[in-house]
Design a protein around this nucleic acid. Sequence first.
DNA 1: ACACAAGCGGATGAAGTATCCGCTTTTTCT
DNA 2: AGAAAAAGCGGATACTTCATCCGCTTGTGT
Lengths: 182, 182
Amino acid sequence: MTPPPLRADAARSRERILAAARRADPKDLRLNEVAREAGVGVGTVYRHFATAHALVEELTREALERLNAIAREAAADPDPGRAFEAGLRAVVDLHLESGGLQAVLLAAHDASPEVAALKAETLDGLREVLERAQRAGAVRDDLTGDQVERLVCGIEYAVRLAGGDERGLFVDVLLAGLRRNP
Amino acid sequence: MTPPPLRADAARSRERILAAARRADPKDLRLNEVAREAGVGVGTVYRHFATAHALVEELTREALERLNAIAREAAADPDPGRAFEAGLRAVVDLHLESGGLQAVLLAAHDASPEVAALKAETLDGLREVLERAQRAGAVRDDLTGDQVERLVCGIEYAVRLAGGDERGLFVDVLLAGLRRNP
DNA sequence: ACACAAGCGGATGAAGTATCCGCTTTTTCT
DNA sequence: AGAAAAAGCGGATACTTCATCCGCTTGTGT
């Protein structure tokens, strides 16, 4: 089941490509330009990553793991409401740091099965945090996990529009809106 | 000051171009395709509208006027809080109907001075509705008009992600978040 | 050291955007 | 009405960007 190990030069190229891609904007990766930056040929980039999305997915793996960690931390907090709030703040922060995270989370299909599995596990964990907070009466219960995810993406979008300075304020607004109102 | 009237054939072409553009997605207008659809040459399209944004701006004029009407209606409501809520709902609806509205509102520079003037007037009106609601204590007062506009764009984005069915729910969340909390 | 598999990278084509300019149509002037 | 001038038309064309293909190079196993 384990794929054959990469040849030495291939591993080197792969790293150079990833390094170059990290310096670029995940929103519009131009693989041609990544190739030039990395000092490799265009063909090399396209063999390692068939599409721009596959490359973004790889870049985002680490962020996805951090997202998973956030879900676990939140699950460990005994106070459901506080867990949800802290978790949501962390999730928005992560979204803003990792430009590719949203693209990966929202993508219907994933290039790598491992990413798909990690993604599913993470989303399950986050949903559980939400549902626990809802059962505790801290969060309005007419929302699904998917919907909250979409709202987070919307807030991420709004923060980016505003230039990043309003992060805290906008998240506060979202949290206030999600709280169960009397 | 008044520009010379269009020649008959020019007016005809212009209308055919606008009609074709209305049928297309404002998010990615391909002027080449608009030309084909309209049955005119590519050059004709590019003379009437120097950039895709200029064309979107023209398409959005009507929506912008409706936005202005929304601001005036809201200003006429004696209850500041209710005015704000109803206005915000209407604004989000309009955003969702007119795909180009967000692009025009957020654009730093406008192709047409008339659009620029109408835009400024409308934004002033909406800001006044917000500030009145804030003075009345109905809306949290640590938000500027610009920020609310960004949040609306974020909600629009989230609704589009979700496929449109969550419009009411997401707007409710935003309104709850904007309300001044005890 | 040799053979062959794996990888490399640029030439290449496909698709889209915007510009330019010779030709046609409309308007204006007499 | 007829001719000259102005305005408009539209496609050939140049420029980008994305993705593929394939001959050449390099690493790996015997």
